[in-house]
Design a protein around this nucleic acid. Structure first.
Length: 961
RNA sequence: GCCGAAGUGGCGGAAUUGGUAGACGCGCUGGACUCAAAAUCCAGUGAGGGUUACACCUCGUGGGGGUUCGAGCCCCCCCUUCGGCACCA
């Protein structure tokens, strides 16, 4: 390499090492020597990666580069920037990877972490590596376990009204479980009917340990329940819904998945449904240091969260089930409806196949042995059956099979069902309605039972049509709307009119009718206003090895005994899950095969068996942003003063694939920690930004096998295999190992330079957009950097700094400072780079660059191309010390204004010329000048008769004739 | 089916949010340097018309309509692509 040429490899190697050795990007917090409390803080966070064995490809670091640029920029603006990185290293993929390579996951995980960390370091990312964390390390997961225990020891008091630091009044708060026990003990809180199932008519003080626990379990934020889960026998584990494909098979391995009830640990996230919804838009949340904030999130993400929570208002209505023999009302059947105004249009009822009322094992089951006389044959199911119960269970089995493994697809739209032989009494008009069992009603939403109003619900309509049930319209559609099965809002008809009935709603618009009838139901004790959520409680158990063990043990009497964390994962030779082809095999988590010495433990003098499930992968990522603030604290999960100082996260960058689950789970934990006094803001992430993907063409040969992009040759726009010459097919999309279309960043960085790679990834388009990678495009950025180098360094390696700023260059410089600063703040990195290119292009051909301009150019370039900027900065000797401890340049607005501006002149909205004029010119002066232009006169027939003269100051002239 | 985002030159994309559409980059064309190539530099580059040359003109932001002095941007209808949800009562 010649002395004066841009030797990016040497430069990048040198500064990479320098920053590491000098710990240039170490962040100080409260309590650290040298910490300056006067500096404003800025917490810039990336969604941390999952350390896969394949390592990163050039698509992965897009968001990391952006956050790196932003955090370097903020640092230069004088902020105390916290910009950490870590690894989300527990989870099924690590376990699978370890199985495939026959190495313990603890080993593979750590070596994968090494790989990825070195890749991130290669990219020159300014992380404070002293704060690195990995969710699978005991010093981290002991605190995940600790937080679990906080949730276990807490209950949600929906009636608690309280005021937070910003003066917001909230109803509902998590509280210590002891407070609930005390309320039960003193009798200030009454047990619910569900609690009475356990307690009978005894008082709290008469209950034994397990009975009390059973009742408390109904309230805890982390509780145990038999849940219908997605059981994959072939993987030997329960899967989350998002790990199951639309075809009802496992995402990983494509094995069948079955629905099956299993006792699981569950998080009561539904308790926070309203607050998770409301705080998306709350504008006055306390930030923990005296101010307030609101979520600055992409609107589509907020919307997805709202839809996921799926709050819907309606009414709970109690119908009475009639005894099949006596006809007497014997039990209540509660339904949820969003349309209580259509109560008079209900003509039948539908239960979920697994509703307790039709479960023969349930003592309250009323299903008669025989169908009532004259029962329509079509109501009796497709399979001939001896008794009603048999018909029902045959139907349930059939729909389970049809839905087997898990029906997510809409193909089976057909509404089928079987009559239960039972009738219910409509509470508002006394009508007897046949009760059906059908698989279009799910036990998991509402109460698992509905009143069917076929005239105003498409599903009920389809069912009624099929089984010949009455369709009775009770809502008049507005004129012009289709009256058949009208589901919108209109006017109530065919219902009681004004008069004696408390349910008189005839003639009322839908909303009013709903309010009226709900109030009347409430008065009559037949129902009440009710809110339902689509959101379900969060199944928190996994039957795997590579996850956080629960800090719990089960005593001989079944009582749950908390165990002080850390509960370390036991060393196990064979950590494979028990797999099988049989969906009914007993569920045996790997930890059940752990050594005896681990499986049993003495808790407070009592022998108990440990919990064998582990936590889901989401657990570690629910709070990692807190641990970064205080990663080595052995006394607590995060020091309060430090937490208060750094939270909330100012900028959180990551992919849109986490728009719902991760962000919702993390918000939920954070709110619970907030309620319990462990954190000081109700939301963790102030500004959220979703970066787009880098896409790439993928190539397949005639057998459909993907061909590595390095093996592809493009001739005349058509792809061919470089060695075999075979013509290939091209498809665009995600970059990934599967498609063989991703390149490791080291490969590209070594060939073109890391600064070039960084610049190109940011220049491809807006950060939020997905854009295709191009090997030609990256050359443009390399040229740009080389041009910067040549403008500042001559062939002999001497700096070309000197001379005086011309007014034009001075103006351009200030204008560029303005543009780059504003674009950086708004993460419009592509246009910021364009502005830098424009400035640099102006310097091409100059013999030397005035010092002030060179300085500012380097400062502005530094966040984007840190290695080069640091190198020239040092050579120029403007100031001692890293360029990243220098002040970001300030634009002087007064020096941006030009003496003359170009003013487009339109006639009838079409540009007919451009006027050069002082920006201070009066409208009259502009008018004079415009009217004297040749091309304007050509289009203005009669200058005396102008219909209108539009002058937008400094922008445009439009003459309307 | 419902909800959301987006459609701009050969390509990636800009457009101060209603004010000269196409900044900047890639590619391409021509030129300089070179024995030659690469690299670099200079010039050009939306389409069509027009001029000896300059002017200049017409069309043009997925399609169709509208509001406005003026629309890529606002309103209505439609088409396409991508993302989310999918019997949620």
């Amino acid at each position: 390499m010649k002395q004066g040429s841009y030797d990016f490899q040497a430069i990048e190697r040198r500064w990479r090492r320098h920053w590491q050795d000098e710990k240039t990007f170490r962040t100080l917090g409260p309590g650290d020597a040298g910490f300056d409390p006067q500096k404003p803080k800025c917490y810039v966070l990336d969604m941390f990666p999952y350390p896969s064995g394949a390592g990163l490809h050039i698509g992965h670091p897009k968001g990391y580069i952006a956050s790196d640029i932003y955090s370097r920029f903020k640092r230069m603006q004088g902020y105390n920037v916290l910009h950490p990185m870590g690894f989300d290293s527990f989870g099924l993929p690590a376990e699978q990877y370890a199985l495939e390579h026959n190495v313990h996951p603890a080993v593979t995980t750590e070596s994968n972490i090494q790989t990825i960390r070195s890749q991130l370091e290669f990219l020159g990312l300014a992380y404070d590596w002293d704060r690195e964390i990995a969710t699978s390390r005991p010093d981290y997961y002991r605190w995940t376990q600790w937080i679990f225990l906080q949730l276990y020891h807490a209950w949600y008091d929906p009636d608690r009204v309280w005021t937070d630091a910003a003066g917001r009044t909230t109803r509902g708060r998590a509280r210590a479980i002891e407070s609930l026990e005390a309320e039960f003990a003193s009798g200030t809180r009454k047990m619910t009917p569900v609690d009475r199932d356990t307690a009978g008519d005894r008082d709290w003080s008469d209950l034994n340990r397990t009975e009390r626990q059973t009742i408390l379990n109904n309230y805890r934020l982390a509780y145990q329940q038999d849940m219908m889960v997605n059981w994959c026998p072939k993987l030997g584990t329960v899967l989350a819904n998002e790990e199951v494909t639309n075809e009802g098979r496992s995402e990983r391995g494509d094995y069948p998945v079955y629905r099956r009830p299993l006792k699981q640990w569950v998080m009561r996230i539904t308790a926070y449904g309203d607050r998770l919804l409301e705080d998306l838009d709350d504008t006055g949340m306390p930030d923990g240091h005296g101010g307030t904030f609101s979520l600055d999130w992409p609107e589509p993400v907020k919307l997805m969260q709202r839809n996921w929570i799926g709050r819907s208002e309606g009414a709970a209505v109690d119908f009475q089930v009639l005894h099949p023999d006596t006809g007497e009302p014997v039990s209540d059947l509660r339904v949820f409806t969003t349309r209580p105004d259509t109560l008079f249009g209900a003509t039948f009822m539908v239960l979920a196949t697994d509703h307790p009322l039709v479960n023969p094992e349930n003592p309250d089951c009323l299903v008669p042995a025989q169908w009532p006389a004259d029962t329509n044959e079509r109501w009796q199911g497709e399979v001939p059956a001896g008794s009603v119960s048999e018909a029902l269970s045959a139907y349930a089995a059939q729909s389970q099979a049809k839905a087997e493994p898990v029906a997510n697809n809409a193909e089976e739209k057909e509404k089928t069902g079987v009559f239960s032989g039972l009738y219910a009494r409509n509470p508002v008009n006394g009508e007897h309605l046949p009760i059906f069992v059908a698989d279009y009603v799910s036990m998991e939403y509402g109460s698992g039972a509905i009143m069917a109003v076929p005239a105003h619900d498409e599903r009920d309509f389809a069912f009624a049509t099929r089984y010949g049930l009455e369709i009775r319209p009770v809502v008049q559609a507005p004129p012009g709307e289709d009256q058949t099965c009208f589901t919108g809002e209109g006017t109530s008809v065919n219902s009681p009119g004004s008069g004696a009935s408390p349910f008189a709603i005839n003639g009322l618009p839908t909303r009013e009718a709903q309010e009226r009838i709900t109030a009347a139901l409430e008065t009559a004790g037949l129902g009440c206003f009710m809110v339902n959520y689509r959101l379900r409680d969060w199944v928190f158990s996994r039957q795997r090895y590579w996850g956080e063990p629960f800090p719990l043990a089960i005593a001989e009497d079944g009582a749950v005994l908390p165990v002080e964390p850390p509960v370390l994962l036991p060393e196990m030779e064979d950590f494979r899950p028990q797999t099988s082809d049989d969906p009914d095999t007993p569920v045996q988590p790997p930890l059940s095969r752990a050594p005896e010495s681990w499986r049993t433990i003495k808790v407070a003098g009592e022998w108990a068996q440990r919990e064998f499930n582990v936590m889901p992968q989401w657990a570690g990522s629910c709070w990692y942003y807190l641990r970064f603030i205080d990663p080595h604290n052995e006394a607590t999960f995060c020091d309060e003063t430090r937490q208060q100082y750094f939270m909330p996260v100012d900028l959180y960058i990551g992919g849109a694939e986490h728009a719902v689950l991760h962000l919702l789970y993390a918000r939920f934990w954070h709110k619970a920690l907030f309620d319990l006094g462990h954190v000081s803001s109700p939301e963790p992430f102030h500004k959220l930004f979703n970066q787009g993907m880098i896409t790439a063409d993928a190539f397949q040969d005639s057998r459909g096998v993907y061909v590595d992009i390095r093996e592809v040759e493009v001739r005349e726009g058509e792809p061919y295999h470089a060695t075999t010459g075979e013509r290939l097919t091209r498809s665009g999309g995600k970059m990934g190992k599967r498609f063989k279309n991703g390149l490791p960043p080291e490969e590209v960085g070594t060939e073109y330079g890391v600064d070039t790679l960084r610049l190109y990834e940011m220049y491809m388009g807006p950060l939020e957009a997905s854009t295709p990678w191009s090997m030609e495009g990256i050359r443009g950025m390399q040229r740009f950097l080389q041009r910067v180098w040549r403008n500042l360094v001559d062939a002999a390696g001497e700096l070309r700094i000197g001379g005086e700023l011309t007014p034009e260059l001075d103006r351009l410089m200030h204008r560029t400072i303005q543009r780059v600063s504003a674009d950086l703040e708004g993460l419009r990195l592509n246009t910021a780079i364009a502005a830098l290119i424009e400035l640099n292009n102006e310097l091409v051909g100059e013999t030397d660059v005035p010092a002030e301009l060179a300085r500012n150019l380097l400062l502005m370039l530094a966040p984007f191309a840190p290695h080069m900027a640091e190198e020239i900065w040092e050579r120029a000797g403007f100031q001692t010390g890293s360029i990243f401890v220098q002040q970001w340049p300030q634009a002087d607005p007064s020096r941006v204004v030009a003496e003359q501006i170009e003013l487009p002149v339109q006639v009838n909205g079409r540009v007919r010329g451009t006027l050069r004029i002082s920006p201070d010119a009066t409208e009259e002066q502009v008018r004079q000048a415009a009217m004297s232009m040749d091309n304007v006169r050509r289009y203005v027939a009669d200058p005396a008769h102008i219909r209108r003269f539009v002058y937008v100051s400094g922008k445009i002239v439009n003459i309307v004739v």
